[in-house]
Amino acid sequence: MLFLVFALLPVLASLIMSVTDMRATDLRTPLSVNFVGLDNFTRLFSDDLFLRSALNTLVFVVVGVPLTIVAALAAANGLNSGLIRFRAVFRVGFYLPVVTSIVAIAVIWRFLLDPEAGLVDNLLALVGIDGPNWLGDTRTSLASIIVMAAWRNFGSLMVIFLAALQGIPNDLYEAATLDGAGRWAQFRRITLPLMRPALLFGAVITGIGYLQLFEEPLVMTQGGPLSSTLSVSYHIYNQFGFGNYGYAAAASYVLFVAIVALSVLQFRLLGSRDD
């Protein structure tokens, strides 16, 4: 029961709140709010900040998910190809960022990317490149956060992909080698098709996670500069902070629908095509 009260109820309550004008002042009397129909939703889609945050989040997902998957795939293949010694060390090392707090990681990266004291720009200076102000420039701020997210998350996909790779029978590769197929051909014709379920799964959970981007911009850029890193979740949180509960609930429902839609879309695109 407790489980249902705290888990299912809010999902429905959120939907109900999204069609009311509930504000922080109604906190003690949540039943006395007015029904406003779809007003919150029409307001949302004419709210420039919301549209900006939706665009940023979309870019984050569309660029970030493939980047993470490619990095994870490369790491998994590297660890799977005949290299037996130290595999556990690499696996644990690559997985390390996954288990650590995003807030702490955002703090570390804010320091690494600092234009003066940061390690990244100082390393670039060694090879004569004048590094940009990564988080302070609208052209690089979102890209920096995307790369950082891929850095943090590829480890978890790598473990899943590694398990999938180890499930592919070796005979297939031996037969392909006898037939004269090169490594790249084997990867494309054997590895990728057989890994499709794992890839699909990875794409879906990474997509769901990335759509909720929140802690990184909060800690690193506060959504700036000029809203270039404002995400939908961050916008919801801000609206909640301003006391606009109904409005925040409406925005969160749009996010929820986007998450479901993305998952369905990925199942369609990557799901089994042969049946």
Binding site: V5, F6, A7, L8, L9, P10, V11, A13, S14, M17, M22, L27, R28, P30, I208, L211, Q212, F214, S233, I236, F240, Y245, A248, A249, S252, Y253, L255, F256, I259, V260, S263
Partner: peptide, 24 residues
């Protein structure tokens, strides 16, 4: 099925009503 469905619901969707509930 409800449990499975809830795996997909993000914290962002539920935190506002949860906050109202917990406050009350």
């Amino acid at each position: 099925l409800t449990v499975l469905g809830m795996l997909m619901v993000p914290g962002m969707v539920t935190f506002v009503p949860q906050f109202v509930l917990v406050s009350n």
